[in-house]
Simulated assay, not measured.
Amino acid sequence: MLALADHPLLTNPDAGLANAPCAVPGWPSSPAAAQAFFTAAEQCLNDRWGELLTAMNLPFHPPQLEFPTGASFTSECGTIDVGVTTAAYYCKDHLYVPYRGLQTDQYGNKPGVYLALFAHEYGHHVQELVGLMDAAWDVIYREGQDSPAGLEMSRRKELQAQCFSGMFLGSTANRGGSVTQQVFDTAWNDQETRGDNTSGSRDHGTNAHYAAWWRKGAQSDRLAQCNTFAAPSSEVS
Rank of each mutant, 00 (worst) to 15 (best):
A230R: 13
R156G: 06
R215C: 06
W188C: 03
T206M: 07
F184P: 00
H204S: 02
D203C: 08
Q182C: 04
H209A: 14
A231S: 14
F164K: 10
W188H: 11
E152H: 03
L159R: 08
M153C: 02
T172E: 08
R156C: 03
T172C: 13
A135I: 11
S147N: 05
W213C: 02
A211N: 02
N174W: 04
Q160H: 08
A218I: 06
A161M: 01
S220G: 10
G150C: 07
A231M: 15
D221W: 01
Q182V: 09
Y210D: 01
R202Y: 13
E143A: 14
A149D: 13
S199C: 03
C163R: 07
A149T: 12
V139A: 05
T193S: 15
G205Q: 05
F184T: 03
S220C: 10
G205L: 01
A224H: 10
D190M: 10
D221Q: 14
N207I: 00
F168P: 06
A173H: 06
G195V: 02
T206W: 08
K157W: 11
W137S: 12
M167H: 00
A149S: 09
E152N: 14
E152S: 13
V179Q: 02
G217D: 06
N207F: 01
A208H: 10
Q219G: 12
G150I: 02
K157Q: 13
A208D: 12
D221R: 13
Y210A: 13
F229V: 07
Q162P: 01
Q225W: 11
I140A: 08
G177C: 07
S154N: 12
F184C: 00
E152A: 11
Q145T: 14
Q162C: 12
N227I: 11
Y141C: 09
W137P: 11
S147Q: 06
T198I: 00
T206I: 09
L223A: 06
E158G: 02
